[in-house]
Amino acid sequence: MSIKRLRLLGLLPTWVTIGVLMIGPLLIMAAVSLMEANVYGGVHLRFDVSSYVQILFDKNLFDETEFNPAYLIIIMRSFMLALGATGLALLIGFPAAYYIARQPDHRKNLLVFLITIPFWTNLLVRTFAWVIILGRGGFMDQVGSFLNIIGPDESINLMYTNTAILIGLVYSYLPLMVLPLYASMEKMDVRLLEAGADLYANRYELIRRIIVPLTMPGIIGGSILVFVPCLGAFIAPDLLGGGKKLMLGSLVQLQFATSRNWPFGAAIAMMLLAIVVIALMVNARAARRHAVYEQTGAEATHG
């Protein structure tokens, strides 16, 4: 066997991993989404696009197809909540990451370690903690009555609202925002800030003109890492939204686990995938625009 063949053989684990564990399931899901649902769960091996139609249209009593906005509302809610959670996480994560990046080395490592600690506990358990905090008579209500914002037996009624879901999402995925932001801020040359201040930039201008452009890779990376899982989240909407405010993730989970409508669940999952891919492509384009400064000497000969 030639060396070349041997080398290709060495890549086998990679191909198996990508093929069997990633592309395979995706193909199965795509196939399932195009089949007919079996009332007892599972599928009939027949081609049927009704699952996709079902996302936007419904059959009424007279067997006529009419527009049904129920799922569209869920899609919009998912999109807006994911976007909002990403924005909030960026707003909270940016100063946090900057603070960590400016600490002396030993403290930096400690703080990054602390940021990752929540990952050690199950997401379900952590989200449930928020149920206790936000729930009737919970921590938030106690603070509210202590500050006389609400009466002693009243509640702020945060539970089962979009706000509660948003809080849960931001909490769950904040570390995924902080870590990439920290990575780019740590690489940033602090002397550039001195140069900026020397050239009459005030604090706001230093952030706007120097820190933000230079940490753009981290901002984009962190936003993707938060936005994507938020879109498919189902624990926060379930526990904090009380199952009333469904999101795409909960819808998929519902179809597979409870309604036993596999093709419909698969169709929604495919649509979720499409939204993510489009979002990533928009992001990648923005990233390319900002990455121009990383061009090196090779480009210089054209000048």
Partner: peptide, 21 residues
């Protein structure tokens, strides 16, 4: 006065040019 309000400018040892500009 903070650095950004002093009418002096600095040429830094390692230039500190803004790489994104």
């Amino acid at each position: 006065l903070p650095p950004n309000q002093r009418p002096v400018n600095t040429v830094f040892q390692h230039y500190a040019l803004f790489p994104h500009l």
